[in-house]
Amino acid sequence: MSAQAVLTVAAVLFSLGLYCVITRRNAVSILMGVELMLNAANINLVAFSNLSLGGQGPKVEGHMFVVFVVLLAAAEAAVALAIILSIFRRMGTVEADRMTSLKE
């Protein structure tokens, strides 16, 4: 299992997440795309952390980052979904391109 294979998987996941975020209208779907991208980033963090570049051996920093990213992703998901719920109550829709009342 080479580092490049792992990173490739992460890159594919990231692109899929990006595609999902770009093409979806539904806010919940967009959030799912964001989660995909975050997961891809996490894989990258672990992989690079494990890479023994410069002969220094594995570092714990990358793993720590993942811990915090997961924590913050949970917080972000909770707040985002609360907002989505609130918007749905007010406007009756969760489609991102219809939420334009801030535009004017």
Binding site: S2, Q4, L7, T8, V12, L16, Y19
Partner: peptide, 28 residues
């Protein structure tokens, strides 16, 4: 357009991964 951008990003990433990194194991 979404697919185009995503594929573009993927291409850049893959290029970086396959030509910019030493082949090393990711397992620790």
């Amino acid at each position: 357009p979404g697919a185009a951008v995503a594929v573009l990003v993927l291409g850049v990433l893959l290029y970086g991964i396959w030509y910019g990194l030493p082949g090393d194991t990711a397992r620790v």
